[in-house]
Amino acid sequence: MGGKTTWKIWGLSAAMTVETAHLLKPAKAIVDSVLAEVELASSRFRPDSEVMQLARTGANNTSISPTLALLIDGALKAARDSDGDVDPLLGGELANLGYDRDFARLPAITAKGVSIIQGPLRPILWPLIQLNGTKLTLPAGTALDLGATAKAMAADLAAARVAEELDTAALVSLGGDIATAGNAKEPWQVLVRDTDADPWQQVSLHSGFAMATSSTRKRRWSHRGLAMHHILDPAFGLPAHRVHSSITVAESTCLQANTYTTAGIVRGAKALQWLESMNLPARLVGLDGTVQGTSRWPAPARKPGSVSENG
């Protein structure tokens, strides 16, 4: 029987399960090491992180750590795969919207204001990022935000390192970003739900696959009397228009899954058709709780006398 542990990190709920129970403690140490490396490289809330140092000095053929180079390479892949809907240069915009500190310290929403969803078009500059090995050049005046992709990559890296170093199947979950590695004897059972009040579904996740959920409901705060959420539309640098409360996608890596969930939130009403066209298993929950799925998403299990929650 496997071993499981849960904890809090980056203001998120984290969990890890290993198939070999007695390896839980060394596995947790490996995960902690990976997360510490990722945080030191990419946090926007640590003044000593590499991302914050670059925000102060800029980057012009600047040497960076292999960890940050790997994270930026993943963020650029996400930008390409989403046609720019996942933009790694939104650090300045997030800070201007008040998201300039750890989420737990942000002001709670106290008014019924709605997020600004339109404004002047911002220049799309991420294609100008130059990454050559560990040498980085950023467009002048820009700031990195690797929050979404770095978290997903951290889950991928942590699960893979546990499986490789300890020879056990592992699942790592970081705030809805779930990665697996190793050869599990049975599929992992995953509960898909954004908040306790939302419709839920249990699905089987086969070893070597990943799942991510992007939400417009959890990371919200108040800024100048308006309700904000953390997924920005890169076209405007403002919170994406809320059509879905959450989108979940299963893919071969957590980075890929998170790319499509984030881009789906940005695409709003076009998300379902787009995810279907990509032949992705995806589950979309509307603001009213209505659940839709692509053709590859598993139908909810039926119990005698029950009604499918997807309706």
Results as ranks from 00 to 15, higher is better:
Val190Glu: 15
Phe45Leu: 15
Leu157Pro: 08
Leu23Phe: 14
Pro298His: 08
Ala263Glu: 01
Gly113Pro: 02
Pro26Tyr: 06
Trp7Leu: 02
Trp126Gln: 10
Ile116Thr: 10
Leu191Cys: 11
Arg193Thr: 09
Ser245Gln: 04
Gly92Thr: 09
Trp297Gln: 04
Ser245Thr: 05
Lys151Val: 00
Gly264Asp: 09
Leu157His: 09
Gly305Asn: 10
Ser82Val: 12
Trp221Lys: 08
Arg80Leu: 04
Val285Phe: 03
Val307His: 12
Ile72Val: 04
Thr261Glu: 04
Ser252Lys: 11
Thr213His: 05
Ala159Asp: 04
Lys25Phe: 14
Thr142Asp: 12
Pro127Gln: 02
Leu287Thr: 14
Gly74Asp: 07
Ala235Arg: 11
Ile178Asp: 00
Val114Arg: 12
Ile178Gly: 01
Ser43Asn: 08
Leu97Thr: 10
Gly133His: 10
Ala282Tyr: 04
Gly176Pro: 07
Ala95Ser: 07
Lys151Met: 08
Ala21His: 14
Gln53Ser: 04
Ser252Arg: 13
Asp85Ile: 05
Gly182Trp: 00
Gly113Thr: 03
Ser43Gln: 08
Lys270Asn: 14
Ala299Glu: 09
Gln201Asn: 11
Leu171Lys: 09
Asp100Lys: 06
Ile64His: 05
Arg44Ala: 06
Trp221Gln: 12
Pro239Asp: 02
Asp100Pro: 01
Ile30Ser: 09
Glu276Leu: 06
Ser115Gly: 11
Thr5Gln: 15
Arg44Ile: 07
Ile178Gln: 07
Thr67Ser: 07
Pro187Val: 04
Lys270Gly: 15
Ala29Asp: 13
Ser13Arg: 11
Val34Asp: 06
Trp126Lys: 12
Ala79Thr: 00
Arg224Ile: 00
Ile109Ala: 14
Asp102Ser: 14
Asp196Phe: 13
Met211Gly: 00
Gly237Pro: 10
Met16Val: 08
Val291Lys: 05
Ala250Gln: 15
Arg44Leu: 14
Gly182His: 02
Arg46Cys: 02
Ala240Gln: 10
Pro47Gln: 06
Trp221Ala: 08
Leu40Val: 04
Thr17Trp: 05
His244Pro: 02
Lys8Trp: 03
Arg122Cys: 12
Asp198Val: 15
Pro199Ala: 13
Leu12Gln: 14
Val86Phe: 05
Pro47Cys: 07
Ala210Trp: 00
Cys254Ala: 14
Gln273Cys: 08
Trp188Pro: 00
Ser65Met: 05
Arg220Ile: 03
